[in-house]
């Protein structure tokens, strides 16, 4: 493969790397696994890049490959010990932007999301990324109606955690 393609790919990924980092944040619990998954997603994106035609946005295409890798292709290595000092990005909440109750709520919700299964996490992730149901359904391969039903169930689950 030629250098030009390589450079174009790396530049696009560099500009959109947030998407991949966010997926890694949801699906891993320590820095090493985060980097591991990031690398695997990068490899999968690069392998599939020649098939990327540019008729959809690079970022849209990335969501699919990144989630597929996290849900399906990635194998967690069991050896990893969770590093104590590592605080996942999602728990970094700026205290001065919220009142105490809100901060507490956010922490509870993020905690709950972390406990969800891989598929539920994917739904929540796409919801948080402001994707509509047609995109969610296409990414996961379920019908739009069922995506909506499932999402509502997850939302209710999160609400009950906050208001028991």
């Amino acid at each position: 493969m030629n250098k030009e393609l390589e450079n174009r790919f790396v530049t696009e990924l560099e500009n959109n790397q947030n998407i991949v980092h966010k997926v890694c944040t949801l699906y891993t619990n320590d820095r090493d696994s985060h980097n591991d998954l990031f690398q695997e997603i990068t490899i999968q994106l690069w392998k599939a890049y020649p098939k990327f035609r540019g008729d959809s946005k690079f970022s849209t295409w990335m969501y699919r490959v990144a989630l597929n890798t996290a849900i399906t292709m990635y194998r967690k290595s069991k050896k990893r010990v969770q590093t104590q000092d590592y605080e996942s990005v999602i728990f970094k909440i700026k205290a001065d932007e919220y009142d105490e109750a809100e901060e507490q709520q956010l922490k509870l919700m993020y905690n709950a999301i972390k406990q969800l299964g891989d598929i539920d996490k994917a739904l929540v992730f796409l919801y948080l990324e402001d994707k509509d149901y047609s995109e969610i359904s296409e990414t996961l391969g379920i019908t739009e109606v069922n995506a909506r039903v499932k999402m509502n169930r997850i939302k209710n689950k999160l609400r009950t955690i906050l208001n028991p």
Binding site: E6, F9, V10, T11, L13, E14, H21, I43, Q44
Partner: peptide
């Protein structure tokens, strides 16, 4: 808060071996 990888760091990754389930 997300990490930022440089062009060079990402470039290094694309030739690494995949350890995917496939």
């Amino acid at each position: 808060y997300l990490p930022k990888l440089s062009h060079a760091e990402i470039h290094k990754m694309i030739w690494k071996k995949s350890s995917s389930i496939v």
